[in-house]
Design a protein around this nucleic acid. Structure first.
Length: 417
DNA sequence: TCTGGGGTCCTAGGACCC
DNA sequence: TCTGGGGTCCTAGGACCC
């Protein structure tokens, strides 16, 4: 058996842990750049605020109903997520942290008649240890656990915990699950399926394999089998090495000056390279990306791929080639709204030169960059950095309503108490 | 009359997830 | 004025090989 545990309205719940006044009140958390709503309390949902709704559109509504709102505070949410995993470790040796607010855990060591009780024990303990309310779904496969989790949160009877193991209950649950709520069925597939008369998960499960294969790829077939209780998706217990790393941000306001934009790109590049080093990886290819506002007329974007002479994670190398690349795609008189960098073709760090004509002094590079990383780890990001990053900060995203660093900044933690 | 068969690799685009 | 960011996987089609 597998259980899916996820934090309810996770970002909002994280904010509430350290600010109890927010309980029982409508609260939303905004995306980067205070762009749109990405997490809503139940009260905010009841008022009709939609997921992904632009903030500026609902600002008057928010003031009128005294809805509390916050810029996203990812260091706080990441830290709360780590606390949840720590708590889950006492319930099962096999845990897959699927996203910042969701984990699958193996429950094959629990007998069927104890599943429900065990689920409640997990829910209560997570709340006790972290202050985060969560939903628990339990069943034979990951996809069925997802179905159970969704119903657990909706049903007044389940109150947040549901174990599905009786066939009649599974059938009933699938009948009640709308096709678009299935894990793996997005907007496009939901539309296509409805056009073919498939409106519930139960109807989906009855579809012909060949039809699914043809119209929804092999993933669609796997989903149907999972709904029959045949496991196709294993728990991923080990952290797979990343295949790509992206860092991109919308600018606080549109930018047209080359130096301003390079300054932003340099900052994203430094963050991306640091992630690369944290993963113990190096890249040889990267792509930089530049775009105007997607929501304005004459949307324009351009990107360019760069191949470095060797695999590396040394930031100055990326800054050097990034500057050349940006000059190639930058155009005057455009109001750019966003830029980013994508690192791909990643492989494990090697300490050897890659070829005969590689004249880098790797020892020196490593000494420099690891010193910089250490200083920044100890004293906060960008305590020390490359000059390109400081040209100016006109581009910095909006983040006007951020909460305190309750868990990651000692001084603020003491103040909060 | 009439022009093979089998395979790999790469890429762009589309779909999904949170 | 103002609309997020970071990922993965699958497939079809083209290019190329013998």
């Amino acid at each position: 058996m597998i259980s899916l545990i996820d934090g309810n309205n996770f970002y909002v719940s994280c904010e509430r842990v350290f600010n109890p006044k927010l309980r029982n009140k409508p609260v939303v958390v905004l995306s980067n750049n205070d762009g749109c709503v990405v997490s809503r309390s139940d009260e905010a949902k009841k008022l009709g605020i939609k997921m992904g709704q632009p903030f500026f559109e609902i600002k008057p509504f928010i003031k009128k109903h005294d809805i509390k709102y916050f810029s996203s505070n990812y260091s706080l949410y990441g830290d709360m997520s780590a606390r949840i995993i720590k708590t889950l470790e006492q319930f099962s040796p096999e845990i897959e942290m699927y996203s910042i607010d969701e984990a699958f855990i193996d429950l094959s060591h629990v007998s069927q008649e104890k599943l429900h009780e065990f689920g409640w024990k997990i829910k209560n303990t997570v709340y006790q240890h972290t202050g985060i309310p969560c939903g628990i779904g339990i069943s034979f496969t990951k996809s069925l656990a997802k179905v159970a989790n969704k119903i657990a949160k909706k049903s007044a009877k389940a109150k947040g915990v549901l174990a599905l193991y009786e066939q009649s209950h599974i059938t009933e649950a699938l009948k009640r699950t709308e096709i678009g709520d299935l894990w793996g069925i997005g907007r496009k597939y939901a539309k296509k399926l409805k056009e073919n008369g498939v409106n519930s998960a139960l109807e989906y499960r009855n579809l012909e394999i060949d039809w699914l294969r043809k119209n929804l790829t092999i993933n669609g077939v796997h989903l149907a089998q999972e709904l029959h209780g045949i496991s196709c998706l294993d728990l991923e217990l080990f952290h797979e090495p990343k295949k790509s790393i992206t860092v991109s941000r919308s600018f606080g306001r549109a930018q047209s000056d080359f130096n301003d934009i390079f300054s932003a790109l340099a900052n994203h590049t430094a963050v991306a390279c640091r992630k690369l080093r944290q993963e113990g990886l190096e890249a040889q290819y990267f792509c930089i990306y530049l775009a105007t506002s997607y929501h304005k007329e004459n949307f324009f974007s351009d990107s360019i791929n760069i191949r470095l002479p060797y695999y590396t994670s040394f930031t100055p190398e990326y800054l050097k080639y990034g500057l050349i690349a940006l000059k190639k795609i930058f155009k005057e008189n455009k109001m750019y709204k966003k830029c980013g960098i994508l690192l791909f073709d990643l492989k494990s760090k090697s300490t050897l030169p890659s070829h005969l004509f590689d004249f880098r002094n790797l020892e020196q590079e490593n000494a420099l960059i690891s010193t910089i990383d250490q200083i920044n780890n100890r004293n906060g990001a960008s305590s020390i950095n490359f000059a390109d990053l400081f040209i100016n900060k006109n581009w910095t995203p909006q983040r006007a309503h951020v909460s305190k660093k309750y868990t990651t900044n000692l001084n603020e933690l003491i103040l909060a108490r």
